[in-house]
Amino acid sequence: MRQVYPVAGTGPVCVAHSGGPGIEWAYLRAPGIEEHFTMVYVEPVGTGASGRLDNHDDYRMDTWWCWSAADTSRTSSSRRSSPRPWWSC
């Protein structure tokens, strides 16, 4: 599954996650914070350029929790910009 992570700024990594599928990351954009942090804006699966799940029922809280843990793990270990391969939950 493709998941996109727009990255901006410099400094320690800060992950910003929008409200879920269909809610784009752009409303989280914070240029003032980007002056002090490397902001990683997660574009959730089901939104924008990120992939879509085949089964709508798979958009569940436990799935979001797993994705968030994977997002944090990937972004804290590297500052590469997206797209990155999907990590299996």
Rank of each mutant, 00 (worst) to 15 (best):
S76V: 14
T10W: 08
W87V: 13
A26H: 12
S18Y: 06
W87L: 15
R84G: 08
S81G: 10
Y5I: 03
D58Y: 05
T72G: 01
R60C: 11
P12S: 10
D58T: 07
R79V: 11
T47L: 05
R74D: 10
V4Q: 04
S73G: 06
T72H: 05
S88D: 15
W67P: 11
W25P: 00
S78E: 07
I23F: 14
D58F: 08
S76A: 12
S78H: 10
R29G: 09
I33H: 07
A69Q: 14
A69H: 04
F37G: 00
M39I: 08
R80Q: 15
A30K: 15
L53N: 05
V15H: 00
H56I: 14
A49C: 03
H56Y: 12
N55P: 07
W25T: 00
T47G: 05
V4D: 02
Y41N: 00
D71K: 06
T72R: 02
E43S: 01
H56V: 15
W65P: 04
A69T: 11
G11H: 03
V15W: 01
H17S: 09
T75F: 09
R84L: 15
G48I: 03
S81I: 10
P12D: 12
M1P: 01
W25G: 01
S73C: 12
R52H: 13
L53Y: 11
T10Q: 14
A16N: 08
V40K: 01
G32Q: 14
P44D: 03
F37C: 01
R60M: 10
R29S: 12
W87Q: 14
S77L: 11
P21F: 13
M1Y: 00
Y5F: 12
S68G: 13
P31F: 09
C14L: 03
W25F: 09
E34M: 11
C66E: 06
R80C: 07
Y27M: 15
H56F: 15
S82W: 09
D71Y: 13
Y5A: 00
N55I: 12
G11T: 01
H17W: 10
M61L: 13
R79M: 11
A69I: 12
G32C: 08
S73W: 11
G9V: 03
A8S: 08
P12R: 08
S81V: 10
R84W: 15
S77G: 08
G19M: 05
H17K: 04
V45P: 00
R79G: 10
G9A: 04
G20Q: 07
S68V: 04
M61S: 12
M39S: 02
S81R: 14
